[in-house]
Design a binder for these strands. Structure first.
Lengths: 346, 346
DNA sequence: CGGCGTAACTTTACCGATTGAGTATCGCCT
DNA sequence: AGGCGATACTCAATCGGTAAAGTTACGCCG
């Protein structure tokens, strides 16, 4: 690699020494100038900055990290069983929200996919070992989540997304699933439903448990008939659950599904069984999507704004890293009423 | 976390010097031992390896990168308009495929999201500037794609996913969209359809253009009536296109949609307009998903195996980095026949 | 005018791993 | 026994940037 006499280095690799050489100072001075620290005169600083700009200098990430500076990177592992990955819109929207905040603040995202929680923890350990991330986001906390325990031991900043009361020493961005269930429940109650079926996602997820607990509370409270069936986010299981519920001599007049994929599966099943929506049964999806808006009938959905949740998770992480107090923002959710919910047939 | 007197260092940070101290050698010897290079005796090597293992040593990524070693990382920017992000299942499946190959080979993925091609190129430049990636994957090449030109200038290994003939000097993982269209077309032809409508995605995408070109060829070749309408992957536009096509006095008996979200939107529209599927119109989606399998009627779809495409893209990239010749694998696609396609009413 | 403070730099060590250039120790051959 | 070569290491420089500890030189004050 021969240097050209002009002083513009060979490849895209410009270092502060290259700048120093051209400015007639040492690399130390360049460092001071670039980082806005005292120790160089304003004239020299301006000159250095101009040269750095001309030479298209960009700081070398590896060098900074090696010196112990933050890698400016947040890690996120997506753990889902193979067959469910990619079918839920939640994740991509959430990711978009996270990214928007991070990139604005100069952070990047490390993303990995895994199929079980043990390998997720292994990935966390890897990242921590070579200082690749400043902190870790954890999605879908489980009841007695092993990842949380491992992270506590590893001692890296972590934000639990969708956790309940930040039980552990880890920050969490709470999603008030109990409150969300209230909104959903009230929507159906207001329409006059007295018999509600709730087809749930994976019950090892802490937030699903909270929804179920809230659902149970509200049924008892309001004295209406409510029943819960687990379908683990799998469409086929949602179909079976729907069939089971509707074959009861006095079945529900409204169904709540924990995801839009399951809601669509449920709607299809109802249609197969000859039930009209919303004539015979009302259907409500816990997640909104473009598909909900275009189905026939259009699907009433809980819009909990996954992108906003992503933004909050990222913001929470950055506050944690800055040692600022975590503000406790409320992720709001509301029911978007569409054609699939209506008063029950009398 | 207090350091134990045993010599296990305080935090997760174990360096080769720590190992060296405990083994009674210098860090140079440790480096030789760990990298399997000659210069240390077998006994010493074994001892060093054992100690490294005991101390849970992991190589420091930043230090290696600084010394000019590969960061073992591949970059991918997802550029989609806000409203479309997260609605297409293709991306997540593709990503899962990419990751499975990369992580198996010890590579990680750098993922960013962007909303336009210019910022995608800016991100590429950033990554290259600090040597953060070994290569870049480019999705959805456009006609005269500005990113490709920029990457050629930057001179980093790149793999174009879904490109046509690897026109430029960049490797591409080809998707033979013309062949895929053949499969789709033949399926409808075999059923006896003579009037086919094709509702397309964004026509600035090179692969969409190829599909359209193939569609046109086949209609001419077979002498059947075919018409193409652009809907840019937006459900609402797909609905309008469907309405437009079906309001023709002699409308199509079969519809092809470039994505499953559009296909679902189309199905809903048909239902609203009073057309039965497949009684009056057959519907075929270019992308398969869980939703296609559970809709009523279930949706016939082209399964082009996004995960396999992701695996091939990753494999192609790794071969490129290893300077191995790119093998030209065929991404195969097949039509999964379901209820939504049937012979036309006579 | 001597001394002190300080602005403006330079020198140097360092982060963790790699690597080419030394060096000590041994065995072996003549 | 002397010398050669190989083996098994150590030493030191390096990657790019940061930061603490020097080193000038100048201005100002008593």
């Amino acid at each position: 690699m021969a240097a050209r006499e002009a002083g513009i280095p060979r490849s895209g690799r410009v270092t502060i020494s290259d700048i120093a050489r051209r400015a007639g100072v040492t690399s130390g001075a360049v460092s001071l100038a670039i980082n806005g620290k005292p120790g160089v005169s304003d004239i020299t600083r301006a000159r250095i900055l101009r040269i750095a700009d001309e030479m298209r200098w960009r700081p070398n990430h590896a060098a900074k990290t090696l010196r112990g500076q933050s890698p400016h990177s947040i890690g996120l592992v997506l753990t889902r069983p193979e067959e469910v990955v990619g079918e839920e819109v939640f994740f991509t929207k959430f990711l978009a929200g996270v990214q928007s905040v991070l990139s604005q603040r100069g952070y990047s995202l490390q993303l990995q996919m895994a199929t079980d929680l043990a390998s997720e923890t292994a990935i966390h350990a890897d990242w921590i070992a070579d200082g690749r991330v400043d902190g870790i986001l954890v999605l879908d906390p489980r009841v007695d989540d092993p990842r949380v325990a491992a992270l506590l031991e590893l001692g890296l900043p972590a934000v639990i997304v969708g956790g309940d009361q930040d039980g552990a020493a880890l920050t969490s961005v709470r999603t008030d699933d109990g409150q969300f269930m209230r909104v959903v429940f009230d929507h159906l109650l207001a329409l006059g439903h007295q018999r509600i079926g709730y087809i749930t996602g994976d019950q090892s997820f802490a937030h699903i448990r909270r929804r179920i607990a809230a659902f149970t509370d509200y049924t008892l409270e309001s004295g209406i008939w409510g029943i819960t069936l687990a379908a683990d986010f799998v469409p086929q299981q949602a179909k079976e659950a729907t069939r089971k519920l509707m074959s009861s001599p006095k079945g529900p007049t409204a169904l709540i599904f924990d995801s839009e994929v399951m809601a669509i599966a449920g709607m299809a099943t109802l249609s197969e069984l000859g039930f009209a929506v919303p004539g015979d049964v009302s259907v409500l999806s816990w997640e909104d999507s473009a598909t909900c808006r275009v189905l026939h009938p259009t699907l009433t959905a809980l819009n909990r704004d996954a992108a906003a949740l992503g933004r909050q998770a990222a913001t929470g992480m950055l506050r944690l890293l800055d040692r600022e107090p975590a503000d406790e923002p409320a992720v709001v959710a509301s029911v978007v009423p569409r054609e699939s919910t209506a008063p029950p047939a009398s």
